[in-house]
Lab assay of single mutants.
Amino acid sequence: MVDYIVEYDYDAVHDDELTIRVGEIIRNVKKLQEEGWLEGELNGRRGMFPDNFVKEIKR
């Protein structure tokens, strides 16, 4: 799994989504079957977030 950095703020709409803020690092990200969404861990919580608000961290 890979990590992503947040490029744009996003406020969660549903309980299974993450609220993300610019500059945060989302860890252990995986792609979901639902197009346009990823799932990852942030601040001890796992949830979904839109893939166009983040950028993969290349290592």
Rank of each mutant, 00 (worst) to 15 (best):
P50R: 15
V6A: 11
I20Q: 01
M1G: 10
D15H: 11
G40Y: 00
E34R: 14
G36F: 03
L42W: 05
G23I: 02
D16M: 11
V22Y: 07
G40T: 00
L32R: 13
D9A: 11
N52C: 12
D9T: 02
D9I: 01
H14D: 11
R45E: 13
R45P: 00
N28V: 00
V29G: 07
K58G: 13
Y10F: 08
V13H: 06
W37M: 08
R46F: 06
Y10H: 07
R45M: 07
A12M: 01
F53H: 15
V22N: 03
L38Q: 05
H14N: 15
K31Y: 09
W37G: 02
F53G: 10
E17N: 05
D15M: 06
I57P: 06
D16F: 07
R46V: 09
Y8P: 00
K31I: 15
R59D: 06
E56C: 12
I20F: 05
M48H: 07
V13A: 14
Y10G: 03
K31Q: 12
K31C: 15
E34H: 15
G36Y: 03
I26Y: 02
V54H: 04
E24V: 00
G40S: 04
E17D: 10
D11N: 11
V2Y: 09
I20W: 02
G36V: 02
V29I: 05
I25R: 11
E35F: 10
Y8S: 14
M48R: 15
K55C: 13
E35G: 12
R45H: 15
E34Y: 11
K58R: 13
D9G: 08
I20L: 13
P50V: 00
K30T: 12
V22D: 04
D15Y: 08
R21Q: 05
E7W: 05
L38N: 03
I57R: 13
R45K: 11
V54Q: 12
D51L: 13
F53Q: 06
G36R: 09
M1I: 15
M1T: 08
K30E: 14
D15N: 12
F53V: 14
E24A: 06
D51I: 15
Y10V: 00
R21D: 00
L38S: 14
K58E: 13
F53S: 14
A12Y: 00
K55D: 02
D9E: 06
E39A: 10
L38K: 07
R59G: 14
H14R: 14
N52Q: 10
D15P: 10
E39Q: 08
V22W: 02
G36W: 04
E56K: 14
I5Y: 08
E34C: 15
N28I: 00
M48Q: 13
G23K: 05
F53N: 12
D16P: 05
D11G: 04
I20N: 02
G36L: 00
E56T: 08
L38W: 07
Y8R: 15
V13E: 12
M1H: 08
N28H: 08
E24D: 15
F53P: 08
E35M: 09
E24I: 00
Y4W: 09
I25P: 01
E35D: 13
D3W: 06
I20T: 02
V6Y: 04
E39L: 05
E35V: 12
E41W: 06
G40E: 00
V22I: 07
R27C: 13
V2A: 11
V2K: 15
D9S: 09
R59M: 12
R21K: 07
E39I: 10
E7T: 14
F53I: 11
L32E: 11
L32P: 10
A12H: 00
K55Q: 14
E41Y: 04
I5R: 10
D51F: 14
E34V: 13
D15E: 13
K55S: 12
E34I: 15
Y4K: 04
V54S: 06
M48A: 14
K31G: 11
P50I: 01
D3K: 07
L18G: 00
D15V: 12
W37K: 04
I5M: 13
F49E: 01
V54F: 02
R21T: 03
G23R: 01
G36M: 05
V29C: 09
V2T: 11
Y8D: 09
V6W: 00
D9W: 01
V6M: 01
Q33D: 15
L38Y: 07
G40L: 00
D16A: 12
N52V: 15
A12S: 10
E41F: 13
E41S: 13
D9N: 07
E17G: 06
D16T: 14
R46N: 04
